[in-house]
Amino acid sequence: MEQQSNAPSTVLTAGSAADAQQDFKVALVLLAVAVALLVHTLGFPMSGSYGGVDNQWFVSPALFPLLVCGLLVICSGMLLYKATRKQGFRGFGELRGWLGDWRNERIKDRWYVIGLLLVYVYVYIPSTDFYLASVVFLLSLTSRFYYPMVNGLSRSSTLHLVLALCLIAVKLNVNVSEDTHWLSINYDEDAIRYSDLSMLMALMCLLTLSVCFPQNKDRKRAVIQVLVVLLVPLLLVCTFNFLLYVPMPVEYGTVSDFLNYLVYDVLAFQ
């Protein structure tokens, strides 16, 4: 946020036109969302008795949301008006204006990081061992930004797509119960083993690709990358699990299970 203000404001006129176009879009989206919420909120109970508390307009659960949504409609309307006056509606239909220019490396990287965050949190963490998931996540980022590999973006994206589909398939097909949802945490130990195995295979693929096909060969960087990627998540998992008593999301994941066994049953750590 703040660094924006530090950016040199060259080509002021061109920038402000692009800004107005962006403002126009975001204002329109906000307006649509705010109006939808306002309509939804009107369905809240305005009077009557609920849970033993008498309800009148001033106690209604809709009072505050209506106020907030109403103000949001007004504010985004004002933003829309300002943007329209600066010709912000131009270029509204172009997809590039919404998603960014795909030929730009920075935009590609942006969507790559966002995509990785999404699969990591919504697919990997709830279905597999946290250590394995984190190593894959970390390696995918470092093999793009720290020690880049050849064709990294397309290779890594394909790998993650296959892996994510694989994990979802495992979760929805192995020993499913009625409560199973693709977002819920894996507790079924068979499903966890299958998922961990897929994760391990993906990890090995990625590791091989990154070590064997770098853009610029640099032995030192390769070693640092492998060490950081394998050891830092281990350190984090051990710290949280054994010192802060934070059980990992998938508690019976292969590595977590092994670490628990090693530390408590074998080493008898108390």
């Binding site: 990591y120 963490i125 996540f137 970390l138 980022l141 470092t142 930004f145 949280f240 802060l244």
Partner: peptide, 17 residues
């Protein structure tokens, strides 16, 4: 590029913890 991915994992682990 090495430090920030780790920060990312920390953020996520912290949000969960």
């Amino acid at each position: 590029p090495l430090f920030i991915p780790v920060v990312g994992i920390l953020c996520i682990l912290g949000g969960y913890a």
